[in-house]
């Protein structure tokens, strides 16, 4: 009983912080999502409009397009980061000359603020001064202009995200791989299992919790990407990189439409929770035994 009380006492500071900085703002956003509210208009009062914002959102082509673009971005970016991160983690498990330096350099993007990453990539991809369009033109004869080409802009944003966040995946997967016991691998080798069988039947099931946790983190981050994309493309050209975070930003700040912006935020949070929950259920949740 005493240890239970001690547990609650130790948890209390976290719970209080979580309540004031997580739960209360969430409740407020849900409250605002049921109102029409433009605080800079002639009438700055909140006007309750029931579920009208939610009625509007399911017919809003800009929002639906932003969801589609975001899903594509998340799919390509997170999948690439996972595969590349695993390959790099396996590489770092072996010894090779310059491993320590390479590992440090490889981790550097993680310490950069997203807004800086966006600015650097903006400089690197601007046609007149950027190093990437220059070399693409000189070596392959490809003209790259992310200001006019939608596929180029989208691909650049995905590559930028992969460059920025793959080290995080690598670090978490290294931690998972290091903690694996050697016995199952030795036994599998004695039984004649090849590398592919060892990966699918031993390594992957044993690191599955770490993989799922990493995917959760990257999924949640990628779904609310704003600053990097805002700096690099501003959501353009057209709506090619207008991800849902950028869409919310444009709806709330330039248009000062706080009620509708909150509604979009609530729906995005809902989609994020559902996707993460489905991922958890399919990969980790205990199955019920029906005899």
């Amino acid at each position: 009983m005493q240890s239970k009380r001690l547990g609650w006492i130790l948890l209390a500071p976290t719970l209080v912080i979580l309540f004031f900085f997580g739960v209360l703002p969430f409740i407020y956003v849900v409250y605002v999502s049921f109102h029409q509210w433009n605080p800079f208009a002639v009438n700055p009062e909140m006007v309750f409009n029931g579920a009208d914002n939610f009625r509007q959102i399911v017919f809003d082509p800009a929002f639906l397009n932003s969801i589609g673009v975001t899903v594509m971005f998340v799919f390509f970016a997170v999948l690439s980061e996972l595969i590349l991160g695993y390959v790099l983690a396996q590489a770092f498990m072996r010894d090779f000359p310059g491993k320590a330096i390479f590992r440090t350099i490889h981790t550097l993007p993680l310490i950069m603020a997203p807004i800086i990453v966006g600015s650097v990539w903006k400089l690197m991809t601007t046609p007149s001064i950027g190093i990437i369009p220059k070399f693409l033109d000189e070596w392959f004869g490809i003209t790259m202009n992310i200001g006019t080409s939608a596929p180029a802009a989208f691909a650049t944003v995905v590559i930028m995200d992969i460059w920025h966040w793959t080290p995080l995946v690598t670090l978490t997967l290294i931690a998972a791989l290091v903690s694996l016991p050697p016995d199952p691998f030795e036994q599998a080798q004695i039984d004649g299992a090849n590398k592919r069988q060892i990966f699918w039947h031993i390594t992957l099931p044993m690191i599955a919790p770490a993989v799922v946790a990493t995917v959760f983190i990257r999924l949640m981050d990628a779904l609310r990407t704003v600053d990097e994309v805002w700096m690099l493309t501003g959501g353009g050209p057209g709506s090619a990189t207008r991800f849902v975070g950028v869409h919310i930003f444009k709806e709330v700040f330039p248009k000062t439409n706080y009620g509708y912006g909150s509604t979009i935020s609530v729906i995005v949070l809902y989609l994020t929770i559902v996707v993460c929950w489905l991922l958890y259920v399919t990969m980790l949740a205990p199955r019920s035994k029906k005899d």
Partner: peptide, 26 residues
Amino acid sequence: PIETNWFDRLFISVVIWIALSLFWFR
């Protein structure tokens, strides 16, 4: 198909309620 406690089942119900409402609106 999964083992659940009462909060899991409440969560699933809320998820279905929101999805059904959005589908209905559309």
